[in-house]
Amino acid sequence: MEYEKENSIVEMMQMQFPEAAFKVKKERRIEVRLPSARLYDFAVRMQKKWNFLHLSAISCVDWIDDGEFELVYHFWNYDEKVLVMAKIRIPREEEGDSHFETISNLWQPAKFFERDIHEMFGVYFDGSEDMERFILTDWNGPPPMRKDFITREFALNFYHYRDYEPQWLKDMMAAGEGNE
């Protein structure tokens, strides 16, 4: 049978979390959608009972049309060799930070990813020891990875570019070709 190992893992997890939606995407990849209140229990069980000891990354996706942030947690199991992507959605605030709970007391690598998501997207992880700015220490603008921040406009307005007007470019633009 195809994907035997992945399907047996899904069955084991579905018994504990009946409200979650599981899907086997391809070999060694399982995707699960959870309600955001159940993530902490899921993470505890992953680490303590099901032996998924490696947190590979935490990613954040800004779905501006839905008004939500999606947080994706990637867990890897060294013995079974399977990756589980746990996806949750939290509401997106226009001004100020959205809030969610931290898992950095379970996994130390989560501290870096949560700090990164905080300064890039504006999601505050409650209970974390350290939410200081890390990479953008002199930045005064909005969180730059949000979809309403257009980096091209910002760069064109804020920085000085060198003037470069050679004759061939002037001829081209007079003929109506080229852009910018």
């Binding site: 091209r152 910002f154 760069a155 804020f158 920085y159 570019y161 060198r162």
Partner: peptide, 19 residues
């Protein structure tokens, strides 16, 4: 250093060094 290079539309790099 001349005109921003590959990162010309980035919000975090400077574009023209001799300013």
């Amino acid at each position: 250093t001349i005109n921003g290079g590959m990162y010309w539309n980035s919000y975090a790099t400077m574009k023209s060094l001799d300013r």
